[in-house]
Design a protein around this nucleic acid. Structure first.
Lengths: 200, 200
DNA sequence: GTCTATACGGAGATAGAC
DNA sequence: GTCTATCTCCGTATAGAC
């Protein structure tokens, strides 16, 4: 029984569409990106696009889940990294890394966050990713705190949530352009300052 | 020559529409808020709405400019506040205050930022406000630095821009709900930590 | 699998009576 | 000034030939 579809080609076609769409979603947002624009960017007809995706929203979600980062592996390694505070900082930088990679990535992530406010399906996906990230932050934060490398005033759960928010700030900063590596340095300094009580 | 329109009533009508629309823009975003939704929320017909605004976008911009904060007055006062570092922190909190006031305010501000990425007119408005805020931050930051209350490593211009980004983080944090006043405390701690070099 | 052509619905905006 | 009714366009998605 010969397969009628080549799964490799099929995946490649999907990927090509997703890559084209991702740029447009980042630049113009979900609603202002028309399927016609996507078709033109991908160099294909609507019929073809809808052969690979059931609709614009499913394409958007496919884009989001494709770029989903695997934090598990990184986390596994950082659990053994010494000192614990450095491991935590490294994790924060890992999470913020996409923001400095390219302005469009920042825009896409922020667009996703906004959509999550308004769409249950998108919200569910991002929630999952966020929970994973926060759990990692909390774990590393707790470890650093136990090692006495973090000020006692910083509570694990709230602190982790706030760190996630600060990572978000790096994405916000990505909108204005400017030097990406400088932004990463600012973030690093900020997180250190937050975790270690500054002398007053 | 009697005026045919009562300017007070006219302004009140505009205001009523803007108030109704602001909530919807915050909740659903610009594109997903239909004029029909606005009409229903405001309890009026499309004809009436278009009597007061030339279009949905002009209404959106009216909402943004109406909620525009007057930083000048606050800044004037903070210039004389001692110590300088406290003045700077107070200014940061002033800028972040709307974010803790109500979740919808956070959403509206973020929506505006996203629209600014895609619309020249919106961008121009926000740019103006942002520039004003950054100028204020830079001024107070410089003053605090000259008083030796801020670590020398923090450069005035970049530092001010980064502080503005951190204020943005407070708005981002507003999306997730949680205790608003706690978020303000986190921000305060973060900014202090950033400005004062923590002992390593 | 891919195209062209088009159906369908909805949203912004207007017309014109009152 | 305000309403009802409606126009027009455009965007999503589909139909059906190749």
């Amino acid at each position: 029984m010969a397969r009628t579809v080549d799964p490799v080609k099929h995946a490649a076609s999907r990927r090509h569409i997703m890559d084209s769409a991702a740029v447009l979603f980042a630049e113009h947002g979900l609603e202002r990106t028309t399927t016609a624009m996507i078709c033109e960017a991908a160099g294909m007809s609507p019929g073809r696009l809808y052969h690979y995706f059931t609709g614009k929203k499913s394409l958007f979600i496919a884009v989001l889940t494709a770029d989903r980062r695997e934090t598990g592996q990184v986390l596994e390694e950082l659990r053994r990294t010494e000192p614990p505070l450095e491991a935590l900082l490294a994790f924060v930088e890992h999470l913020a890394a996409p923001a400095v990679a390219h302005p469009l990535v920042s825009q896409l992530v922020l667009e996703a966050m906004m959509q999550a406010q308004r769409d249950e399906e998108v919200r569910a996906i991002l929630e999952e990713v966020d929970a994973e990230e926060r759990a990692g932050l909390e774990e590393l934060l707790t470890r650093a705190a136990e090692a006495g490398e973090v000020d006692a005033e910083v509570e694990a759960r709230d602190g982790a949530a706030w760190l996630a928010t600060l990572v978000g700030a790096a994405y916000l900063g990505g909108l204005d352009g400017g030097d990406p590596s400088a932004r990463l340095a600012q973030l690093r300094r900020t997180v250190r300052g937050y975790l270690l009580l500054p002398r007053v």
